[in-house]
Amino acid sequence: MMKPGRIAAVHVPLLVITGCSGIQSALQPEGREAVELHGLLLASTGFSAAITLLVLALIIVAMWGPRSWRHRLAHEWLIFGGGIILPVVLLTCLLVYGLVTMDAGASRAARAEGPGITIVGKRWWWQVVYTSTDGERVVSANELRLPVGRPVTLRLESDNVIHSFWAPKLAGKLDMIPGRTNTLTVEAIEPSISRGQCAEYCGGAHALMSFYVVAMPAQDFDAWLEAEAGPASDPQNTAARRGSQLFQENGCGGCHTIRGTEATGTIGPDLTHVGSRHSLAAATLPNDAQAFSRWITNNQHIKPDNLMPVYQYLKPEEVEAISVYLEGLDLGD
């Protein structure tokens, strides 16, 4: 029944880092918008709980209460009071709180700094495009890095079906719709790693379209972006060199880009620094050589319907060499 280690292995180590099981929970906000939404969420939950208890109490009194109590309830005033006046008063308060919270979004958006980040929903992964300090496009995938304390505009797009970008600890969700660009301003308020997932059903492997959000101190982020903008590191050993060669020979570069090499495909995720990311295949697998091997030979079983072919004709040692090469494509730290 179980497929051990498909996804589980990814974030068990991450759990250790974050220290709790709410890595994707809206109840543990770590972003400016998420914090503001959380307040409204708690207030409206309290409202709902209170009204539920009131109704329960009234039902109990209406059924089993003393005759005099029941007699008092059995009039139209109960309907006017409980059904009209009470909701009008309470709902007015809630609506105002809700609208004020919503309007705060506009002022958050006005504070955004820098060139922003473009995220394009793919089937079934995320293309993430940063802009380096010298204005270059820096393409990455399936992981969003953010500077803590700096409001950043995310431009959300899609060139296929509708997806929805949702990192619950950071902010509420916003859809990615073909033909439109939606903007979402996010601001991480503390360094952390959290998880997000596509929230709009996008067919096929919708369930396996997740990502990690890594919020890092602003200067670390700047340093990281500079490194990320650079070309891929050269293969460090024989196996990796062999893997690099096999990668080119088998046409992997038709779909994937590895900057600094001949691989310039744009159909699949950019792999320039794939070894530095927290997961593979949109947070479906952990990031290690073994996972690369499994993905190359068995990806349709791991993530059915994904658009990458299965490379079963490769010999095990060839697969291993490619995996070693890809795992080594990190930022050298």
Partner: peptide
């Protein structure tokens, strides 16, 4: 609750 737009940002879908 879901009719409050900001709550829906989180709980929608």
């Amino acid at each position: 609750m879901v009719a409050l737009v900001p709550v829906d940002y989180q709980v929608h879908d």
